[in-house]
Design a protein around this nucleic acid. Structure first.
Lengths: 247, 247
DNA sequence: GGCATGGTATTGTCCGACAATCCGACAGGC
DNA sequence: GCCTGTCGGATTGTCGGACAATACCATGCC
């Protein structure tokens, strides 16, 4: 019949208060937070309590330190911070590589289409640069993986939609380990990826949304073939190492 | 030329250590964490330091308290925790309602298709229950909004793909405010939504992935019409209140 | 077996302290 | 003018100890 009385420890109320200020943009990006002692004075709590509140905001990515710096500054969460949290959550929810692949399949064609429509010249050039770099190098597995992910990332940027950029990050992060195995084990993988990227780039340059979407769909579908050829079990958890399936 | 020397404060090393244990499943979900004093003893740091580390993990959703409880338990991040972080990040990245809409347009058809293929009987019934509840009530704007979001959510569950479930949450959260305005201002909105949901449900029941995807695409496209009719500027930031466009 | 009860353990919060070091200012040399 | 060395103050990271509130558990009672 009755709800439990709301009670929140002080460190939580402090962090919520500051969080609210940031979200309402009363504290703006790049601004330095008052010192811990000053915050403690204003909130009338102990510095230890303030510090606990700050740790919460810090790990939410709302506060961060300049390189080697001491003070905390208001920041918006980087894509890495957001992606880290989400991919960690997905790992704990026992998402499998096939789940990530399915999500990529659902979302990437839409990103490619949006990018084709809205890309500007600079974004197009960045996209081409990444594709060329991938096409150029033949060795270095790690760099190849980074470039493939970078291609998706550049496409997200080109779409001009921050939602796509932030959603992309965790998916790419989870894709990478299995992608590395594919590139190692499937001889024709590099050539196929290179060809697909070229098609997508051409469509984006031509502002042909339908073609971009279509080629991207094929590109992603190809990854699934890659899993099979490389012998990666589709049910591998994204937290595990994607070794070969036991035969 | 030189990388900065790596240094991490103790509270960070402690939290990373515990985080690692959780991700490697050496600490499993539901397990109670040792007490703060015990952790301080084992890590050989002060309890204050341990507490700062715990606050970080707490806000990452990796640790949480039972209702009214004192001890911390290992948990996997709830979709609310994940969604909260992501939608907060999107607001700070100045995502607009049109960006969220575009992302929904990209991802929902894929979810519907997956749900059509893999739904089981229980998931189908939950989906139908949500749709019926929305169709039933005529008043109560807030409930209607919750039901529309619940429909997408149930579809994500039916897809059996945790990636879809977790990606859905922040998008729905950001959709809600503007959806409320649409439902208030567009007389035919409820009827159109109800009709679209019925079509999707039918397709999911028939395991017809193509139809589910297609109807869902129309359903989402309809929201854009809703924005226009309701006079919501597409460039409204997701952090702002979606009032009418000034005419 | 279920329920009240009391002691104990644990968390939330405070205080005070101190070392390390970042920051800004300032002076000096090329 | 610009770089370097120096210095004092401010700020953070960490520590130890303390205490009230209360969640937890075992015990005893019916």
């Amino acid at each position: 019949m009755f709800e439990p009385l709301g009670y929140a420890p002080a460190y939580l109320r402090v962090s919520e208060e500051i969080r609210g200020r940031i979200l309402r943009r009363e504290l703006t990006e790049g601004e330095a937070l008052p010192t811990e002692t000053e915050l403690a004075r204003q909130f009338e709590v102990n510095r230890s309590t303030v510090r606990e509140a700050l740790r919460k905001l810090e790990s939410a990515g709302l506060l961060s330190r300049r390189r080697g710096g001491k003070r905390l500054y208001v920041t918006r969460p980087t894509r890495e911070a957001v992606g880290g949290g989400l991919s960690q959550a997905l790992a704990l929810h026992r998402a499998r590589v096939v789940d990530v692949w399915e999500a990529l399949q659902a979302v990437q064609p839409g990103i490619a289409a949006a990018a084709a429509v809205r890309r500007d010249e600079a974004a197009l050039q960045r996209l081409e640069a990444v594709a060329q770099r991938f096409a150029g190098r033949q060795g270095d597995r790690a760099q190849a993986v980074a470039d493939v992910a970078g291609f998706f990332d550049a496409l997200g940027e080109a779409s001009g939609n921050p939602v796509f950029v932030l959603l992309n990050e965790p998916l790419l992060r989870l894709l990478k380990p299995s992608l590395a195995v594919i590139i190692d084990r499937v001889p024709q993988a590099r050539a196929r990826i290179e060809a697909a990227q070229a098609k997508v780039v051409a469509a984006v340059r031509a502002r042909d949304a339908a073609a971009a979407s279509d080629w991207m769909a094929r590109h992603v579908r190809d990854f699934r073939r890659g899993y099979e050829v490389a012998g990666i079990a589709l049910s591998t958890g994204v937290g595990e190492s994607p070794d070969a399936a036991v035969s």
